[in-house]
Amino acid sequence: MNIEIKNITTRSATNNDLPQLTQFLEELVEAERPFDPTLIDGKIVYYDIQELILDKKTEVLVAEYDNKVIGCGYGQIRAGKVYEKHKFFGYLGFIFVKPEFRGNGISHLLIKDLKNWVLSKGITEVRLEVYHEHEAAIKAYEKEGFKKLLTTLRCDIG
């Protein structure tokens, strides 16, 4: 579906958005399953969305088109490690756009607005995590200025 980005708005999520955000989280988990053999079978909940909405160190945004929630993401202020340059950094997560709306710049809008929220807190470092083999997501994040920093390796020895 081709839509104009000017017709998309973002706003802070509320408890009224919980049913849609819960559905998005379920879809996100299913989309990520092929990239992670360590995930357990069955229903997985990465995080408590209502807790994120209520957290003062977190901003959960939803993207709307025609008064319908079509995407989301969150920014969170996290403490850096004692040996890192930044005492705090912004962490982005739960970037999700409904499949039929992808390719219209919605994730760009969400990321831009979340970066601005992090900046409003006086923080200039933003990080996120993405599966190494999720090439489409990596390309999208690199277009937003993100660079690869660390790779986690695993080995099943059982």
Rank of each mutant, 00 (worst) to 15 (best):
M1I: 06
N2Q: 12
N2I: 08
K6T: 01
K6Q: 00
N7A: 06
N7D: 04
T9G: 09
T10M: 00
T10Q: 00
S12M: 10
S12I: 05
S12T: 09
T14P: 02
T14L: 01
T14F: 03
N15M: 14
N16H: 14
L18K: 09
L18V: 05
P19T: 08
P19N: 08
P19Y: 07
P19M: 10
Q20F: 08
Q20M: 11
L21R: 12
L21F: 02
T22W: 07
T22E: 13
T22V: 02
Q23S: 12
Q23R: 12
L25I: 13
L25C: 12
E26K: 02
E27N: 08
E27L: 10
E27K: 04
L28K: 06
L28G: 04
L28E: 03
V29R: 02
E30G: 14
P34A: 06
F35V: 13
D36V: 09
D36C: 12
P37H: 11
T38C: 12
T38N: 15
D41S: 11
K43M: 14
I44A: 09
Y46V: 06
Y46C: 07
Y47S: 15
Y47T: 15
D48E: 08
L52Q: 13
L54W: 01
D55H: 05
K56I: 03
K57H: 10
K57W: 04
T58I: 05
V60E: 03
L61K: 06
A63H: 09
A63C: 10
Y65N: 03
Y65R: 00
D66N: 13
V69D: 07
G71C: 03
G71H: 02
G73L: 01
Y74F: 07
Y74T: 01
Q76F: 05
A79Y: 13
G80S: 01
K81C: 10
V82K: 14
Y83F: 12
K87V: 08
F89Y: 06
Y91C: 13
Y91N: 14
G93P: 02
G93K: 02
F94Q: 07
I95Q: 03
I95W: 03
P99G: 08
P99Y: 08
F101V: 00
F101G: 04
R102L: 04
G105D: 01
G105N: 02
S107V: 07
H108E: 11
L109A: 10
L110H: 06
L110T: 04
I111E: 04
I111G: 08
K112N: 11
D113K: 01
K115M: 09
K115Y: 09
N116E: 06
N116V: 00
W117Q: 04
W117S: 01
S120M: 00
S120H: 00
S120E: 00
S120N: 02
K121T: 05
R127I: 00
L128R: 00
V130W: 10
Y131L: 11
H132N: 15
E133N: 14
E133C: 14
E135L: 15
E135A: 15
A136I: 15
A137S: 07
A137Y: 05
A140N: 03
A140E: 01
A140F: 02
E142S: 11
K143A: 05
K143W: 07
E144H: 11
G145N: 01
G145L: 07
G145M: 07
G145P: 03
G145C: 06
F146D: 06
K147L: 09
K147R: 08
L149D: 14
L150G: 12
L150C: 11
T152G: 13
T152Q: 12
C155K: 15
I157P: 08
G158I: 14
